[in-house]
Simulated assay, not measured.
Amino acid sequence: MKLLLSLLVSLLLFQCKQVAEKDQVAQTAPLKENQTALPDSTCTCDTLKAKLNFHSDLTFSNNGRPFDTLVLAPWKNNPDSKKITSLTLIDFDTIPQAMKVFDQVDKVFLQAINHKNVQGLEHLPNLKYLVAEEERFQWDSTTTWIQNLEVIIANKTSIAGLNSFRRIPNLKQILLSFSGFEEFPQDIGFLECLSFVDIGAHTFGSIDLSKINFSQSNCIQEIAFHSWHKNITGLPIGWENIPNVNINHQILL
């Protein structure tokens, strides 16, 4: 009897040691390629949904021609450039490096005419609030500026190349209309700060909501998914615990 009890105790201690070792490995294991660590600190949850109207401090238009960076010359070494926190950029497929003069900008409204892939947003390192109208984005493994985004608002815009929402760890709101991801990452529920998700008239790609889990989303205030095109299916896990839910598509099960 004593021998059996001793064996049971030894087995229990061995199992506890294995669990502890696994936890230690999980905590110290390096991130996989293209994976971004979620913030350690507790985030501040948004309680108000972002407004779609957008007023900016300055507007620049490319008008389908190469941008003349000389128009930015008056802002160079000008202390007033620090007061500029928002920009409207019309028909820019490439945002010039000279835009770095506005290093305090945290909001950008992009309006497209040529529908080309937007490049150069890394020149605005404090960008947190992105509004896009009829744009095209290709976010590959080298697209690091998106990790600071907190709000994405887009209309008639497609986003390709995003394989995980963990690459946008600070995202609080994503509001899309007639827009979408070519492949919608299923890990959106892991975003600690996410408060509002509104996918209206979903276009580009498909979303299987049954593979999305919001049950651990402490900040979430509202989710809305709408489509006329049978490109959204199912219901997300944890939807019944979210204060405001609006799911309207043709394949609920």
Rank of each mutant, 00 (worst) to 15 (best):
E33P: 02
L252C: 10
S177G: 03
A20T: 13
P169K: 10
Q111W: 00
V101S: 10
L70H: 11
I242D: 05
F14E: 09
T233Y: 03
I113C: 00
T94M: 03
V118F: 05
F60W: 06
A73S: 14
K32D: 07
Q24R: 15
N248R: 14
I199N: 02
N114W: 07
S141P: 00
P66W: 01
I84P: 01
Q97V: 14
G180C: 05
L130E: 02
V131M: 07
P243E: 12
E183G: 08
T69I: 15
L7R: 15
M1Q: 05
P66C: 02
L121A: 04
K172R: 15
S10F: 12
S164T: 15
L48W: 11
Q147H: 12
P39W: 09
Q97M: 12
Q97E: 13
Q18W: 00
P185L: 09
P96W: 08
F178Y: 10
T88K: 09
Q119K: 12
E192N: 14
K172P: 02
I174F: 02
F14Q: 13
L58E: 05
K172V: 08
C43D: 04
F178N: 11
T94Q: 03
T44C: 11
F92R: 01
D80Y: 13
A73Y: 09
G64D: 01
N62T: 09
L8E: 08
W145G: 03
S217I: 03
I251F: 11
K76D: 00
W75Y: 15
I247W: 03
E21V: 14
I199T: 02
M99H: 10
V118N: 03
L176G: 00
A20L: 13
C43Q: 12
I247M: 09
E21L: 14
N34F: 12
S141L: 14
D46F: 15
